[in-house]
Design a protein around this nucleic acid. Sequence first.
DNA 1: GGCTGCATCACACAATTGTGTGATACTGAT
DNA 2: ATCAGTATCACACAATTGTGTGATGCAGCC
Lengths: 213, 213
Amino acid sequence: MEKIKVLLADDHQIMLDGLKAILTKDRSLAVVGTAKNGLEVLEFLKKEPVDVLLLDLQMPVMDGLETTMHVKKAYPEVKIIMLTTNDEGSIITSLFKVGASGYLLKNASKEYLLKGIKDAHEGKKVISSHLAEKIIESLTEDPKPKEGTRPMITKREIEVLKLIAEEYTTQEIADQLFVSTNTVATHKRNLFVKMDVKNSVGMIKKAVDWGLI
Amino acid sequence: MEKIKVLLADDHQIMLDGLKAILTKDRSLAVVGTAKNGLEVLEFLKKEPVDVLLLDLQMPVMDGLETTMHVKKAYPEVKIIMLTTNDEGSIITSLFKVGASGYLLKNASKEYLLKGIKDAHEGKKVISSHLAEKIIESLTEDPKPKEGTRPMITKREIEVLKLIAEEYTTQEIADQLFVSTNTVATHKRNLFVKMDVKNSVGMIKKAVDWGLI
DNA sequence: GGCTGCATCACACAATTGTGTGATACTGAT
DNA sequence: ATCAGTATCACACAATTGTGTGATGCAGCC
């Protein structure tokens, strides 16, 4: 099988040497070059094809994120794995949005790194488990923590809410829930008060905002 | 050190036996009981404390998600790891929202499972790497791939649309735009047709979806 | 100069939504 | 046992929304 062509980019020479030492030990990989910043990466790509790009997030001149955007635009087939020391987390999602294939901590094990490169080359996304955790947490945490005391909305009210969002009339909702229109109207008015809105339109907007529907 | 008290819940006896066999081999864990559904889990918790709960997602009577909610409400300190055969992905986020600590595939390795239990016990979140990947992808994918085929909406209509979204009545909108209520009503009905909705609620939902407001 | 799309308005009427007020019954927690 | 919250319903009435139909003026376009 063809060797996977890897390009390394990091502003620290020691890091480059270390990575190179690790990667060249693996028969299926070939380190075809190194770069000290994003510009050098782009220069290199003009001359030679690359399969996987290992990119340090923190670099002078052109950092990892910016480099990723440029590279992905000009050479979409190149897989990019970002390396970082500290897991800032906040930029992770934007990183994947611009097309990165992976995001690993520099202290990842040798095996994990090698596996990551191969997985990325096959089109998979790779992340350190620490980072996975971080993402889950950011996914879990309420985007609006200001109103921790968000009014409590009951199960039945949610049902009504969802049906309203689906453009059903009060009558239709009543039929579906096997209750009278009066009941539905009551649920609605309670929702209006709880959510502090004037009408169904405001309610549905806020419900979307709150992730209720 | 105190052993980690683990409760297993799965509707298949074989699974319970298998898990028990694996877990009891680890000195730091103690399987304190098993349950066949969510109700049995709640029953057990009434009598005996548990550190970590291994929960099958698919169960009769009371499934994993529902059980998690109940358990977390009554015993918030209990860590819950969900086990599943197929990775549906869609419910992952809601799972973590209700307080689960982990989500693992049943075919996870023994080591991974044991590590997961210990990590969860320490308050970490654990997920199978497959699932992490899934999440990343769903996070990355563009939610609006077909913008071009949208009906053309005029400047004036957008103005009306935004004011509707802000809970103004037709009368108020007419006043703000210095036109008659009839005009506003006409804009509205044109919007209904163009956006293919039945009422203002549907319109605002779609408008949010389309990024119009 | 004619066509099309946009914005404007009118009038009438049906349908739906929103409000005020009060009532009953069940459940879970104190 | 009492109390708070939920869910249910009634009735009446005001306000608002949605619909059907038709009309005018104005711009930009071929």
